[in-house]
Nucleic acid binder design. Structure first.
Lengths: 339, 339
DNA sequence: CTGAAAGCGCTTACAG
DNA sequence: CTGAAAGCGCTTACAG
């Protein structure tokens, strides 16, 4: 293994000079710098990450805690992961991906062993058992997902409340007076998936304000249950003229279900979803939707995390709570209700 | 930060004794061991990963190189990633996830800086630019995907040739005499996606042997193109009675297409796919399929990689080339052709 | 059964 | 502008 000592010897300088020449942390004569760079190239030198981490207390690695929970749609998670991973790399960091079932335990292991400079938590629950661990850790953390208690961390999420209201308003404005909301499975809510009820209760409230009827039901996360639940909802509320879908699996299953029932969108039924554009494209979901922007949220979290890693012991910068406004993407799946 | 020195002091022993007590690498009196363990618990000690890596030359991290290429179905990749990640953790390793576009460059960075003990390459192409880099690296590597040259690495893949033959035979046995094969997009093949043409040419050869007609076409990876391409294939070969689908996006789009054309499976058309069971379940694809077993392949690769990391400089164990036999999962989507 | 010391490969004050 | 030395926190021969 070629070390900085080899480089120094080849360049005829001391190890410290070689190190400074590479880091640029002090002025080095052009000639010496050239000799060092030459040696680096000739010998194919790359600093040992472990040694550097030990000396600097910086690993240049970000820990990413993902969770694949029952009742959630795994492919949707991938987009957050890729956003975080790509953004990290652009800022000079690698990504340690943690998928352990016991997230709190994994987080403790990762942070205490100093494997990472910071943590991104995905899929944060209302009262997330990982949060106390994260607050106690020496590294900063950024969340994608809004928990009950945001203290000590930077938080990013879609504004689900505004999303719910805007989805209702969109259909109300077109003249719909009875609509259905398909949420995530009830299991997700029970587990503390606050985003689900945040959208749901805001939608219910907005419907009340507008004086229209909203039937809020929980969907499923897998076929064939999800298809059945859609049919059940449509059977239960035959007069509904609009459908709000806050559930990826349901959105993916919806075309078949509507087709089977001979329902044409938007002629017979208006539909508005809430999922990422990537998702919409992959499955060609022909419904207007609010973009859940997983890539963007992941990137925002990383950017703030890296800023905080850099700031470190500096002025106590206040923690960020950023709720991204819903962006509506029109795919012409809504219209006034049938006469 | 609490170090092993703190533990040693608290336990009233030397640092080496504390270290040995924790590693168990030499016999320590029960009493001392207890004192050390107590101190560890009281102080909340966890070894510093960087320091340990420096001392042992072992990072206990596996590098996972994924690629998200145009024309490929990203959600399918997730299952390989999770297989690798979970298997690594079970064997005591963490996973560094690399998604950089320039895989060869990233691989070089990761291996030369000694961030990882071994490498898993996903989505390996026929002539993969990452392979020369991997062979030159000091760490061992395991591949998921069969390249042209397997020297110096352990290789795991589905037996795509056998898969292609068995899919054809399955329909031939039922009496089908004209069938269509939908492969991945041509772009994937051009880029060196050998698995695509391995299945395809084996299927073509097997059809020839059986004396039946096989129309092999390339599909698409996204809607709406994928739906159009399915319609086009069905328009082009109206007498075909069987459909082989080696394309996730096409499989996901197929129910809608068949529905739209009034084709009932298996009454009017027999269908056999090639995708993971997880995928089939997520989208409730009602077609019999050969399981692409991403989770299993990822796990196999990791297990062999870890074995090789352990073996290290030992007897030159020969490299493994393991092609997993196709497993057929019957979902009753095939039957004799209509009279 | 235990301890003192060297060494892993870096970086960075401290001196000049 | 450069070098000799200390130190980051571990592990592991070497001695006893």
């Amino acid at each position: 293994m070629v070390t900085i000592g080899d480089v120094a010897r080849a360049a005829g300088v001391s190890r410290s000079t070689a190190s400074y020449a590479l880091s640029g942390k002090r002025t080095i004569s052009a000639e010496v710098r050239e000799r060092v760079n030459d040696a680096v190239r000739r010998l194919g030198y790359t600093p040992n990450a472990g040694a550097r981490a030990l000396a600097t207390s910086q690993t240049m690695v970000i820990g990413l805690l993902a969770q694949f929970l029952e009742g959630e749609f795994a492919p949707a998670m991938l987009q957050y992961i890729l956003g975080v991973c790509d953004a990290s790399r652009e800022l000079g960091y690698d990504t340690l991906l943690i998928t352990e079932a016991d997230g709190a335990h994994a987080l403790s292991r990762i942070t205490r062993s100093r494997m990472v400079d910071g943590i991104v938590l995905l899929n944060v629950a209302h009262q997330d058992p990982r949060l106390p661990v994260l607050r106690a850790a020496p590294q900063p953390g950024a969340l994608v997902g809004l928990p009950e208690d945001c203290s000590g961390v930077d938080v990013f999420d879609l504004d689900f409340e505004k999303t719910g209201r805007s989805m209702v308003d969109h259909l109300h404005r077109l003249g719909h007076r009875e609509i259905i909301l398909i949420s995530q499975p009830e299991l997700v809510v029970q587990r503390g998936g606050a985003w689900v009820w945040r959208l749901r209760s805001a939608a219910l409230d907005q419907a009340r304000r507008r004086g229209i009827v909203l039937h809020a039901v929980f969907g499923e996360s897998r076929q064939p249950a999800v298809g059945r639940s859609l049919h059940a909802a449509l059977d239960a509320y035959p007069d509904a003229t609009g459908l709000l879908v806050d559930n990826e699996a349901a959105a993916a299953a919806l075309p078949m279900v509507l087709h089977a029932r001979g329902i044409e969108v938007p002629r017979d039924m208006s539909v508005v979803g809430r999922y990422s554009d990537e998702f919409a494209q992959l499955f060609s979901l022909p419904y207007s939707s609010v973009d859940s922007a997983p890539d963007r949220l992941g990137r925002l979290a990383v950017r703030q995390l890296v800023r905080r890693i850099g700031a470190e012991a500096e002025t106590n910068e206040p923690y960020v709570l950023r709720l991204v406004a819903p962006e509506f993407h029109d795919r012409e799946s809504s219209a006034p209700p049938p006469a």
